[in-house]
Design a protein around this nucleic acid. Structure first.
Lengths: 147, 147
DNA sequence: CTCAGTGCAAATATTTTGCACTATG
DNA sequence: CATAGTGCAAAATATTTGCACTGAG
C-alpha cells in the first residue's frame, strides 16, 4: 500500500476513528491526488460518499496534521498531504498546481525576526507563487516565445 | 486628512471611480481601523451602506493594491491597508490582531530559493502567527504567571 | 437625459448541522 | 443493543449578481 495512504489511515486510527468503507474511499482518492485538491473535487470524484462525510473526514485529517489546509485568495481552500514535517507551499498562479518545499533558511529568518516582532512567534506560513514548468513550457510554444 | 484615507480615495479615483457618499463612508471607516477587518465588520459598522457596495468597494481597493486580502484558515478573509509596499503579516492566534512587517532577509531568502524551486517565482506571501503582547499580558496576570 | 452608482433581495458557493437510518463491536 | 458512522437535506455563512431606482454631470 502506498505510504501516503498508510499515513492517512494511521492518522484516522490514532484519533480512535474506525476504518469504514466511506473513509477508505476518501483516503484512497487523496492518495491518488498528485496535486492539492478541494473538498468539492473529492465530492465530485466520490459521488457514493456523502458530502458531509467527505468534509468530516477532511476535517479529521487536517486536525491530525496529515493534511494541510491552504486558504487561497478566492474560492474554496485546497488541501494537500503533509509529506514533510514542516514545509511551505508553491502555488502555480496559472494552473493552481501546489507543491511543497522546505528550506532551512526560512527557519533561520524566523529566528532573526523574533527580535523585531511585537509578541511571541508561535508559527508561520509561507507560500511562493510561481509559474510552474509545465505552464512555462506551454507559453513558450505559444506566441510569446520571441524573448 | 489622514494619509491612509487619502491613499484609499486616490486608489479609487485612479481607477476612474467617482467619489460618492457611500464610498467615503467606507474609506473613512477603514481609515479608522487599526487592525485588519472583515467585510462583515464593515457592513455592521456601516448599516447605511448596502452590503453589495461594501463588497464592491473592498474589491476595488484590493484590485488597486490599496488593501491586502488575507485569506485565513477558517471563516471570512480579512483586509488590511497596505501601508508599506511589500510586506508580510503577523496574526495573533489568540485575538486575531493583524500587524505588518517588512524584513529584507525575507527577500534575500526568496532569491536563494529561486534555485531549488521548480518554475519561476512570481510572488510570495508570508504570515507569522504570534501571541501578541496584549494577549501575553492578559495571560500573565492569570494563573500561568509562575514561569 | 444618461449612465455610474446604489440598495435590496435573490442567487450562488461553501461548509456545517440535525436527524433518522445503518452497521459495527 | 449501544453507539459510531453515514447520507440527506436544511441551515448557516460568505459573497456575488440582477434589477429597478437614484443622483451627479
Amino acid at each position: 500500500m502506498d505510504p501516503v495512504e498508510i499515513k492517512l489511515i494511521t492518522a484516522l486510527e490514532d484519533r480512535g476513528l474506525r476504518k469504514t468503507a466511506a473513509r477508505s474511499l476518501v483516503t484512497s482518492r487523496i492518495e491518488n491526488a498528485n496535486d492539492a485538491f478541494t473538498a468539492e473535487q473529492l465530492c465530485r470524484d466520490l459521488p457514493e460518499v456523502g458530502r458531509a462525510t467527505v468534509y468530516r473526514t477532511i476535517r479529521h485529517l487536517v486536525d491530525s496534521g496529515a493534511l494541510c489546509k491552504l486558504p487561497i485568495l478566492d474560492g474554496a481552500p485546497m488541501y494537500s498531504v503533509a509529506r514533510v514535517e514542516h514545509h511551505h507551499h508553491t502555488i502555480c498562479s496559472k494552473c493552481g498546481a501546489v507543491g511543497e518545499f522546505r528550506h532551512s533558511t526560512v527557519e533561520r529568518v524566523m529566528r532573526s525576526l523574533e527580535k523585531e516582532i511585537d509578541g511571541d512567534i508561535v508559527g508561520h506560513r509561507m507560500e511562493i507563487f510561481i509559474t510552474c514548468n509545465q505552464c512555462l513550457a506551454k507559453s513558450d510554444t505559444g506566441a510569446n516565445s520571441a524573448v
